[in-house]
Design a protein around this nucleic acid. Sequence first.
DNA 1: ATAAATAATGACTTCGAATGCAATAATCAA
DNA 2: TTGATTATTGCATTCGAAGTCATTATTTAT
Lengths: 336, 336
Amino acid sequence: MAKQKRVTSYDVAREAGVSQSAVSRVFRPGFSVSEKTRTKVLDTAKKMGYKPNAIARMLITQQSGMIAVIVSSRANVNYPEVLSQLNKYIAQQNKRVLLFTLDSADDLAGLLENIWTYQVDGVIALAAHFEQSSLEQLEQHQIPVVLYNRNVPDANVNSVCCSHERGIKQLINILHEGNHKSYLVIAGPTDSDVANERRDIACQYLKQLGHDNVPVVYGDYSYESGRKAFAKWTGANGVPDAVICSNDIMAIGVIDEAKEHMSISVPDDLSVVGFDGVSPAAWFSYQVTTIRQPLDQLTKAAVDILMERINNPDSPPETRVLTGALIEGNSTKPRQ
Amino acid sequence: MAKQKRVTSYDVAREAGVSQSAVSRVFRPGFSVSEKTRTKVLDTAKKMGYKPNAIARMLITQQSGMIAVIVSSRANVNYPEVLSQLNKYIAQQNKRVLLFTLDSADDLAGLLENIWTYQVDGVIALAAHFEQSSLEQLEQHQIPVVLYNRNVPDANVNSVCCSHERGIKQLINILHEGNHKSYLVIAGPTDSDVANERRDIACQYLKQLGHDNVPVVYGDYSYESGRKAFAKWTGANGVPDAVICSNDIMAIGVIDEAKEHMSISVPDDLSVVGFDGVSPAAWFSYQVTTIRQPLDQLTKAAVDILMERINNPDSPPETRVLTGALIEGNSTKPRQ
DNA sequence: ATAAATAATGACTTCGAATGCAATAATCAA
DNA sequence: TTGATTATTGCATTCGAAGTCATTATTTAT
């Protein structure tokens, strides 16, 4: 039970009667070692329980094999899943995820400095509101970055995102063609870029279709906030024909609120659409009409793009926009 | 735009006219440095954009400041949230989460070797089925481990878990006292320790209360699996008085299946209980009677215990069992 | 068999910060 | 002012593996 001392490449070298360099080469792929020494080293290494120290390797190779993933501390509803997926693909590339939490937006500069000290091979940002200057900070350090579901207009950034524009227009088309007249938009938190984007797209497109001055109320993406926002607005203004929610969970809240407290039938008296395509949206009690974000492809694309920049730092920035799939549920229905 | 060279402590030392040691000491808390050199160093460091390299520091101090978190690749439903929480508390301790994925149980030994090479300060395991031997492997390397929601009987391990026993008994008491006669247990995947534990506790306690040979069918914790398991069993055997599901999501599946395909009313004709207390369980359309796992306390406890072992390696192993809160929803009702 | 080409090896340096130790400077007491 | 204490400093070494370069062993060609 004595405190095990760490076995180093020198220990193995001595024991196997070779040089430390030889041991090192055996553990690096594609280096020239004779079969004899290779087996000798591998045998003694196994016998002594030697594994190359990742930290020392990082220091000398200047490559940590780690990818920094930045998530917001007040986690957006489906980010945990995104994180899981990312981790899966990153692990497939034989790299590791090093997690960083961003508490408030103004910590970003400090956080990036911090990330940099870890010599990470790349960064994937889920939550941060990136300014151009932050990106430059990382560029200076030659660290490739991919933004997930975050568009920085006219910046040279790698990013993947689901086309909110296309998706939201599809949803609104259904409502518009279904002859809905009065609308309500329930948007997400205003400090979220994505939430603002979804809101703006909806409002603009509605206007374009002739629905001026559509009211907008705000939630925080949660079930409760959806319920309350809907209850409060309808209490004062009556029931609209259709509610456009910035995510599925709030849409579910709206549906439940209608069901519980009002004698409003969804979809007969009220149509509701969401966004994201999370699993509860498909549950029988809700069947929300929504756009499913291609989570799997999005995360895979993010990792692909990042790997490409890591292996080939001069590749130009790339934005990959994937389109979500329209899911026509049972929460919308044309008016007579 | 030229490739920025890394600023080292030597560079700062030269520029500030002091030794490298001085620079190092300025950046370590609690070391003796005169006020004059401290400011001088800090100024030039800031001017040159110097930050101590975390990797080099890890190598020399033998402390990485990283906590390995092991998650299963086929993620258990609510692990993403657990991960987020853990990350939050670990970040509070000024440490980082390094994620590791376990694909199949037999990779564990290799994975642990791998983890060890990163010199992590500690390990939190969410998913792994740990054998005593694996634990010894880490113990040899002096790396403290905390198991999350995983009991290794008569092993000296640090662990936190929610008392399944107490919770499930509470749920069953409600059903039993509510005069339910026929039961069905829908268990989780058999390769999950937690799932098996929940199943066994339910069956044993039911037996103890005089309900022999309660049938058990299996799902995989998913909504669909809950629906199908319930549909299949009732199709062949009729509707029981009560269904005990190993998690909330399957319970929700059961409720929806009853609602959709059968003219079974929950809770009038059928009582359903779940486990976990995930948010959808509280939604108006379901209101599942369940036990809420104290996620926040569990994760906090895990991190606390780990930090204690890191700072004081000789602390004896500790198991902290937290009790979940019973939530009486609207999915259960006493029989006449 | 011998020159030429190739493969394998080891000595030594490197990555960047931390720290033991000895030397020096600053402070204090008398 | 001098010696004793204490606070700062710098030198040199360390952590553990990787890679450069020159050297030696091996293979191939002639």
